[in-house]
Nucleic acid binder design. Structure first.
Lengths: 244, 244
DNA sequence: TTCCGTTGTCGTACGTCGTACCGTACAACA
DNA sequence: TGTTGTACGGTACGACGTACGACAACGGAA
């Protein structure tokens, strides 16, 4: 299945900036329409539902017609990513810390709105209009924080990593719930194995904490995210204020 | 392809703890051997190389024979995850902060040693021997930090999220390099589009920072990770010391 | 208006995947 | 020495991405 052909910015950029759009004959097929349909499918049923056949069917078009406008599925994924990153709005007002918090919440919300984003390669996305807008916004937020350039980059990276990881765990937990693998069911299934899982000899701390947790219950994802964000920003703040 | 059958702890736990191992007839096939082969394939060529046919071939066995011992591919993935989490060694000595740092580095190293881990559902993994050992280790590290139980959980979650996100970005970047999508190539491909990407009117900050970045160069992943880890622990430390 | 080359459209087909189904043959017990 | 339970695995089905080539719709030239 893997055709060993990798998408690269060289082939993706003209698509992203629509500088080489193919004319449509009778079908009304355009890059934009294809990406729109793919995003709709992914939002509804996950990235697994984005098949070339599925996208084509949604557009009322033959499967292979897509290949006139898009080289392949991986490039389509890159286009989808840039498409949903285009919602990155400029953040004004407040100090760098507040701006960063707003951005982190924005990014988290986008991941939860489009959880398939978390499955896509995103380490070094091609600079389409959407990714460029997000890049601009992130940099502008940290502008004037007083950090050196290298520190600014590292800080953005730390925030991005945290937001990504937190969103991914939450997204997977949501999938679990949707498919019936609830918290309740989880512990029900573990009941026959609790003597192994919570063996006080092998796992003393786990045994003890499980007791406490049963009383207190787990924190929800929202407050857990806010806690981590606040701690990370506090740690960066220490650096800004020369305290650490 | 999706058979709508989801793996759950109820079916996976007996496999994880080997309480219902099927006897092997002439082939020497066991759960352990299957998991071992699958991990070897994944380490070598990624999670995509772990196909039932591939695992069977590596074991010199018919494809369908695997299904005698393992219900399906998703359960095999869960077994693989627990298998590599079993390397979680107890961390002794130092204060909570040092112990957390050691654990974070251990976890990051495991993600980079087994990057396919990052692709697996891991939000609420079934408690096999490996996952239980990691859980015990994590909790023991934070024991005695003075944080309340809810804060401890949130702190672990924040650290886990950060480590996961950072490892994922680094892993993807490594894949990019391996497949020829190097940093150099990236900017070469962008050259014809720089007037769009770095348009001073639309993206003023990006335009300016790109100039600086060209001089300074990017920080590597190691120092970037250490920066984020240090900041996050500093922020948690503020809380412990009642400073924030 | 007619013709023809260009090119958007898409039906067919191939090789991959996970796995359902079922026949076969071996091991353990009678 | 039957008899039976079950480990093993061959075949097949429906999904997938996409290579290939036939066809038809369009634009410009005559």
């Amino acid at each position: 299945m893997n055709s060993q052909r990798w998408p690269d910015p060289g082939t993706t950029l003209p698509l992203l900036w629509r500088t080489a759009e193919r004319p449509s004959r009778g079908s009304g097929l355009t890059i934009g329409a294809i990406v729109e349909a793919a995003v709709a499918l992914a939002d509804a049923d996950g990235i697994g539902a984005v098949t070339m056949r599925g996208v084509a069917e949604r557009l009322g078009v033959g499967t292979m017609s897509l290949y006139t406008h898009v080289p392949g599925k991986r490039e389509l994924h890159a286009l989808m990513l840039d498409r949903v990153f285009a919602d990155a709005a400029a953040v004004a007002g407040g100090d760098w810390r507040e701006r960063c918090a707003v951005i982190a919440r924005q990014d988290r919300a986008r991941y939860l709105r489009h959880p398939w984003l978390l499955e896509l390669p995103a380490a070094r996305p091609a600079f389409g209009p959407g990714v460029a807008a997000k890049y601009e916004r992130d940099l502008a937020a940290l502008d004037g924080s007083g950090l050196r350039a290298a520190e600014m980059n590292a800080a953005v990276m730390a925030l991005t990593s945290f937001v990504y990881g937190a969103a991914r765990f939450q997204s997977q937990a949501r999938d679990d719930e949707r498919d019936g693998r609830t918290e309740r069911r989880f512990w029900q299934d573990h009941e026959p194995f609790l003597h192994l899982v919570l063996d006080p000899a092998r796992f003393p701390t786990a045994h003890r904490v499980a007791e406490e947790a049963r009383r207190d219950g787990d924190a929800d994802h929202d407050s857990s995210f806010e806690f981590g964000l606040e701690r990370l920003l506090a740690g960066i703040g220490d650096l800004v204020e020369g305290r650490a």
